[in-house]
Design a protein around this nucleic acid. Structure first.
Length: 495
RNA sequence: GCCCCGUUCGUCUAGAGGCCUAGGACGCUCGCCUCUCACGUGAGCAACAGGGGUUCGAAUCCCCUACGGGGCGCCA
């Protein structure tokens, strides 16, 4: 159904040579995470927006790992990000590109800019720069650093010091970012300093690398978080210095935590795999995430196919949203009820290794329990909002006798209730065909004969059969666990 | 501090000058349905940040204030 990555385990590609040069006027977008941690919820939504945009327009969705900072590079993080995208079923086109591997090309462009007089070597040292910033801050001026080397003769360079290369950005005028979400945003050039494009160790910095890669990858639309808005202005200057066309921009608002604060790692932000382990379905998470910032009239439950059909940048709002578990959970319930029993069994099995009590259940499923679970799924999924709740609700299917009763079940099984069970037993013994309908008929007959309300009979049965006060319909339960087990569980509690 | 952006029910949002007595969804409250729970369903509570303009008319346009967010690295 969804575009699965055709070769998920291939190494990150390092060259552009296999990229189709022209894509027939179709948009090319990319998701470009930095491998500093897992795929968090904001990144997931950015990826989703990009993916939807590409799919909607029949374009291309590329993946690029922004790993130019070698000190922060982390292979486990790359793997976690790719896993997260796969789980969310956001398949990308081609192989992921490692930005670091393209450093040679970045250097080439930096040198070209030097040649064009759009960049210059800067021998200023970090301590010196820091001091200048402090001074600016103290004086109440914008904390931008103006390198003395912009106009100084390179011949005056200190010996034995490797220079960094800075963009020679315009000092006057303004730089305008035409953004599909933020509108037209203008920055005075005096507020944009000469950013370093090549470090003194010869490695490119983010803003250079992004521009070069987006250009080389023929990216037409850059969709990312608003935290990159000022970068868009800086990057625009680099595009202009190189005479390259500037891509379309769309800077989407950030997602905040339930308390309104920034959803950061240190604020309890979770990786996407945490949502999987909490029993959420990828389709539900996609639906929830897209609605955080994007709307299509009053539509709430929007299947992915419809999302692809409807998605557009013009539906994205400018204000940040808070993450709300209650709504995600409600949406998840809808998707669970509409999922097939087989899919739910498969998804449950997928997460068993990572949830509490999962391995034990996995063993039971492997030992023949899978069919029993799937058979009971209809009743289970109707009353669950997460896969975890299904697992919990399925407890009675695999419980060993004598059943442990929870507090509510124990309360239900008072002396009269136990007597009711005992009195009912002969009728159940007489049920010829152990089907839910037959069983129900027998129980209803007993209720009629004794003048008891059905609930007065059914609840004790439920407690005895499941050990709890809540379960799928008791007659279904009895049919599912089988005549022998059902009667035995009832006898255990009869008095 | 400087530069940008935002602000509609608790939350996500609809709303592009009259269709708004501001709609939907989640959550919450009270019913109905019912063997429990859930689903479904009916009803209810609940918002245009504040102040000035513009206009016959403003949630929608302009300005100011307040609050919130983002950015200001040889991080990405």
């Amino acid at each position: 159904m969804l575009h699965a990555n055709p070769s998920p385990h291939q190494p990150i590609r390092s060259s552009m040579t296999d990229l189709p040069a022209q894509r027939g006027g179709k948009p090319v977008v990319r998701f470009a995470p930095s491998p500093t941690g897992f795929l968090h919820i904001g990144g997931a939504r950015t990826a989703l927006f990009n993916w939807l945009y590409a799919r909607h327009h029949g374009g291309t969705f590329l993946l690029r790992i922004e790993d130019t900072d070698r000190e922060r590079n982390n292979e486990a993080a790359v793997a976690a990000i790719l896993d997260g995208l796969r789980w969310l079923e956001l398949g990308w086109d081609g192989e992921p590109v490692s930005q670091f591997s393209r450093a040679g090309r970045h250097r080439e462009v930096a040198n070209e800019m030097l040649k064009r007089g759009r960049a210059y070597r800067c021998w200023s040292q970090p301590a010196e720069i820091e001091a200048a910033r402090e001074a600016a801050k103290a004086a109440g001026r914008a904390q931008i650093f103006e390198s003395p080397w912009r106009d100084r003769d390179p011949a005056a360079a200190p010996a034995g010091v490797e220079p960094a290369i800075r963009l020679k950005s315009p000092r006057t005028g303004e730089t305008t970012v035409r953004d599909n979400v933020q509108g037209t945003v203008t920055f005075p050039n005096k507020d944009l300093d000469d950013l370093i494009i090549l470090r003194s160790d010869g490695n490119p910095t983010y803003n250079l690398a992004v521009v070069v890669d987006d250009h080389d990858m023929a990216v037409t639309h850059v969709i990312r978080g608003v935290d990159h808005l000022t970068n868009a202005a800086r990057q625009t200057q680099i595009y202009e210095a190189m005479g390259w066309p500037v891509p379309e921009f769309a800077h989407v608002p950030l997602i905040h935590g339930p308390d309104g604060a920034k959803l950061s790692k240190r604020h309890g932000a979770l990786g996407i795999e945490a949502y999987r382990a909490m029993g959420y379905l990828p389709a539900a998470l996609r639906n929830y995430l897209v609605r955080l910032g994007w709307a299509h009239g009053n539509d709430e439950i929007i299947p992915t196919e419809r999302l692809v059909e409807w998605f557009g940048l013009d539906g994205i709002g400018k204000s940040p949203a808070r993450f709300d578990y209650a709504k995600l959970t409600d949406l998840n319930g809808h998707y669970i009820r509409n999922a097939t029993d087989a899919e739910l069994v498969r998804r449950i099995e997928d997460i068993l290794p990572e949830i509490e009590g999962g391995p034990a259940l996995a063993a039971k499923l492997a030992a023949g329990g899978r069919a029993r679970l799937e058979a009971a799924m209809g009743g289970l999924k109707d009353r669950a909002k997460t896969l975890l709740e299904i697992v919990d609700g399925a407890h009675y299917l695999f419980a060993a006798r004598p059943l442990e009763l929870d507090d509510k079940a124990r309360a239900l099984l008072d002396a009269p209730a136990r007597a009711t069970i005992a009195a009912l037993l002969p009728r159940l013994l007489a049920v010829a065909d152990w089907q839910a309908a037959e069983i129900e008929a027998a129980v209803r007959a007993h209720a009629d004969a004794t003048g008891l309300k059905l609930g007065k009979v059914a609840q004790p049965l439920r407690a005895a059969l499941t050990g709890r006060a809540v379960s799928p319909p008791v007659f279904d339960v009895m049919a599912q666990i089988g005549r022998e087990d059902a009667l035995a569980r009832l006898e255990d509690q009869a008095a």
